[in-house]
Design a binder for these strands. Structure first.
Lengths: 306, 306
DNA sequence: CCAAACCGTGAGACAAATTCATAATCTTCA
DNA sequence: TGAAGATTATGAATTTGTCTCACGGTTTGG
């Protein structure tokens, strides 16, 4: 049996119009076409779909089953078509985000909260587990936005600068290094360093400071949650290096000291990577703007990137 | 956008097979046809359905929405086709019943209980409200079986005899008429008659006895439920005429007397009317057989109709 | 870097749906 | 009942759309 949407629409129209002639008009085809169509269906199914003995044409038992199917299915199809239209117009879409920097959750959540209110039809999600190969995943359309601090020249991928940040040394105010105006790589040699449980290549302390200087901390303790890291630091179980937007809340606390890395401090820049054809989508532009401006409110007063 | 089931099946197959070539094999068409089909859909929808940058071919956001639709819809269509097959084979079907005689509920319910166990896929129902025009409704396929005691010669309608019954006079054993061996029309002239709330043309007392004799009871009280009628009769608030299968349970009770109407008693025959093309359907034959044999168990010992 | 596997495209073959013209039926009203 | 009007059915021709064939282009993996 070769059922098609056309047939369902036909059944529905004939039922509603109460006859072939009127239904044909409503469907913008001839009455003859409908007659042929119904006959074809009935031949294939081997069942009469309408009771011809009566006027107006009424559905038979089999016809009623088909009508019920039509009433369940056709609205879904229409909903899908509306959905696709939204997708094309850019009103709806998908925004699955991969973040290479673990601490980015801190500013990303508030940004996404704002975003979701403005774009309720966009499917927002943060995809865990592919921080390593985030950019390939972006190219394969497995994700739609990657937050990264290492822009690469890739075809079809745009890197939009978001904001600068400073990885900052954090320690208990009772810690010996609290006496120094800034810390250097050597200062870590006899310290317990608390980090997120990710590869060294994605930790600023290592990429910017310790690895170049070939310094290894006395020990490393990996902790998942930012709040727990700060707790351990406060109780002097180790020291940490965190982005400035994270330490904002502890910067002026009596329990902590924050110090720049090296005399001048280190500045890094975060980027959002997107597929070129989507960078200018309205919702994408919006989330990029939010990600450029909102995190600044969590940092020390500073100048936005032009 | 001109979506068809074919497209949904295609999307599903390509997704499952992970490529056009394999999907084509599975669908028994060429890879080229699939390529054309997908292209056509994408052109119409204005959206890419697959991510071509990657191997194996992956669904885009829009494609995923289509796949979700396919997974919801296709099983329903298959279920419907199975349903129709059942309808054709006669395993399933509709058995909507109209009864012209109000008291028939008494034997019909047990019959339908038995029937439903044997034919779980048949949609059984008793349609109220069309007792007047039951036969036209049967012809228009609004119902599928009519219980009637007045067979008519109608084209395309079969009347199958079910069983004979006797309308029986029922009164309190304290009632004066209890003294008589049988009752006549004249006996009703000063009685309160309790009947079902239906037209006189459908009450045996009137059609068989009172109307021909032009006798009017002193008063008439209409009551819906058989049990309530018997209650009122027992407390001597009136007399009634009920089919023998109804009075079976009170026939030997000390509270009631049952008497034949007229010296010889009156015998009527019930028929089941069905559309000729359905009379021989397996399930229809079964319900007819049940309706011929089961009610006898409620009556006094008697001989089935040959 | 080459071979194999895979996907895309255009032309032509083929199938299916629609239209046109008209016949057959059913309804209604005098 | 009979005729007019409305409605549905049918057959042939036409149009539309889908599929196959053949081949070119692209990606993948040894």
């Amino acid at each position: 049996m070769h059922l098609e949407f056309r047939h369902l629409r036909t059944i529905k129209a004939i039922h509603e119009a109460g006859g072939l002639a009127r239904a044909a008009e409503q469907l913008h085809i001839t009455q003859s076409a409908l007659s042929h169509q119904v006959k074809g269906l009935e031949d294939q199914a081997g069942v009469e779909l309408f009771v011809r003995r009566s006027k107006p044409l009424r559905l038979s038992v089999a016809g009623q089953k088909l009508l019920a199917l039509a009433n369940r299915i056709l609205p879904e199809v229409e909903a899908l078509e509306a959905d696709l239209k939204g997708l094309i117009s850019g009103r709806s879409g998908r925004l699955h985000i991969a973040i290479e920097c673990h601490a980015c959750f801190e500013w990303l959540f508030p940004v996404l909260e704002l975003f979701r209110k403005a774009w309720p039809d966009v499917d927002v999600d943060i995809r865990p587990g592919l921080a390593f190969g985030a950019l390939p995943a972006l190219m394969r359309e497995e994700v739609d936005l990657v937050v990264s601090s290492d822009p690469e020249k890739l075809p079809g991928i745009d890197f939009t600068p978001l904001f600068d940040y400073e990885p900052v040394f954090v320690a208990s105010s009772r810690h010996p290094l609290a006496q120094k105006a800034f810390v250097t790589a050597e200062d870590f040699r006899d310290q317990t360093l608390i980090t997120y449980p990710v590869d060294r290549s994605r930790l600023d302390v290592f990429t910017e400071l310790l690895s170049p200087a070939k310094v290894e901390p006395a020990s490393i303790r990996q902790v998942e949650l930012t709040a727990v890291i700060l707790l351990l630091v406060a109780s002097n179980r180790g020291v940490a290096v965190l982005p400035d937007w994270v330490v904002r809340e502890v910067r002026y606390s009596a329990d902590y000291v924050t110090r720049p890395l090296t005399a001048g401090g280190i500045t890094k820049r975060l980027y959002a990577a997107t597929r070129s054809e989507e960078t200018t989508l309205p919702y994408m532009a919006h989330v990029l703007r939010l990600a450029r401006t909102e995190p600044l409110k969590l940092q020390k007063p500073s100048v936005p990137i032009a």
